[in-house]
């Protein structure tokens, strides 16, 4: 996503914006006072009656809400090729990471040399975050982004080691790679699993893959946890057409608006009062999870950490991909945290 130099911001109307949460300060838009709070719009739309409290809390920075969430994506989803799983005799969803890797061993012995498919640097960060989530649990994971977050704990080291092991089962990717080729590997049967956000559904659809040819489940160990990222719209300060901007925000935040928007985009509404009937199968299950699971924020998509922090994490992960030195990975992550947290 391109980043506008701050001072050009105000010329634009509402723009698509990765969700700033309490722990973050996306590109400093809030601290530079380039966007204004939209709490009134949220209230007009129905406030906590229609948006999960969890989500609104994550949207709040210094007691004000700065954006209207339009759609939610889930990041901790495994997409799998059912044929490959059947051929390897795998019938059950693995309960945790170790069981999952045991399944990958089985698949490898059946001739699929890369059971897990991976893409460029940001997809690696996404995989790592799901491993962290699985190893630390939802509370432990969320605690990482607070001022007391301990990135050098035994659990984080374990997560790093498991991530290292997972990479052994993955293909060779390069930093600049995008995600579709990795998902394509699952579609083509060259890999069994791909951890990707739910925009992957669109890839399956575009390749005309039958619904029973692929399956999906939360990353082993993260069942009951919804690792979210949201797109949301903000209101810039000094907008040339404030009434029009607010109208747009009201539209995109309304039930009808979110229904139309999300059907087109393949994500799920941020509102809880949109009927799931018209949504395809995956979205229905996702909406169900979103309403009932514990919600945590995604690192890779800028929901849990600021951009600067994410940049350092990405560098650490990119460096690790070449060196495979878990000790350095952990210390780099800890250094990034101490530089940016609190």
């Amino acid at each position: 996503m391109q980043h506008l130099p701050g001072f050009q911001y105000a010329e634009w109307g509402p723009r698509l914006h990765r969700l700033p949460t309490a722990a973050t300060e996306d590109a400093g838009y809030i601290s530079k006072q380039q966007i204004v709070p939209v709490g009134d719009v949220i209230e007009d739309l129905g406030g906590t009656g229609v948006f999960p409290q969890n989500l609104l809390d994550l949207l709040t920075v210094k007691d004000a809400i700065y954006s209207v969430p339009s759609n939610i994506h889930r990041a901790n989803v495994v997409w799998a090729n059912t044929q490959v799983l059947d051929d390897a005799g795998i019938t059950a969803v693995p309960a945790d990471l170790d069981a999952w890797m045991a399944d990958m061993e089985t698949i490898k012995s059946k001739g699929v040399s890369t059971p897990l498919s991976i893409g460029g640097a940001w997809t690696q960060v996404q995989l790592l975050e799901t491993v962290l989530l699985s190893t630390l649990g939802a509370d432990g994971y969320t605690a990482l982004f607070t001022a007391d977050g301990d990135w050098e704990s035994a659990e984080v080291t374990t997560a790093a080691e498991k991530y290292d092991q997972l990479l052994d089962y993955a293909n060779t990717a390069s930093d600049g790679d995008d995600w579709p080729p990795a998902t394509d590997m699952v579609i083509d049967g060259k890999a069994a699993y791909n951890v990707m956000g739910d925009w992957a559904v669109a890839q399956f659809a575009s390749k005309d893959v039958a619904e029973d040819a692929y399956s999906y489940f939360p990353v082993p160990g993260t069942d009951g946890v919804f690792d979210f990222l949201a797109d949301s719209f903000t209101l810039p300060k000094g907008a040339k057409n404030p009434a029009g901007c607010k109208d747009w925000l009201m539209t995109v935040g309304s039930a009808e608006g979110q229904l139309a928007f999300n059907l087109a985009k393949g994500s799920i509404p941020a509102r809880t009062d949109v009927a799931p009937d018209e949504f395809p199968a995956y979205q229905k299950s996702a909406m169900d999870s979103f309403a009932n699971d514990t919600i945590v924020a995604s690192i890779a998509h800028g929901a849990a950490v600021s951009e600067a922090w994410l940049s350092d994490i990405t560098t650490a992960v990119s460096k690790f991909y070449g060196s495979r030195d878990t000790e350095t990975l952990v210390s780099d992550l800890a250094a990034a945290a101490s530089k940016h947290a609190g």
């Binding site: 394509d184 083509d188 575009s206």
Partner: peptide
């Protein structure tokens, strides 16, 4: 044709 494009 877009649907025929694959790495293979």
């Amino acid at each position: 044709d877009a649907a025929t494009i694959s790495t293979a």
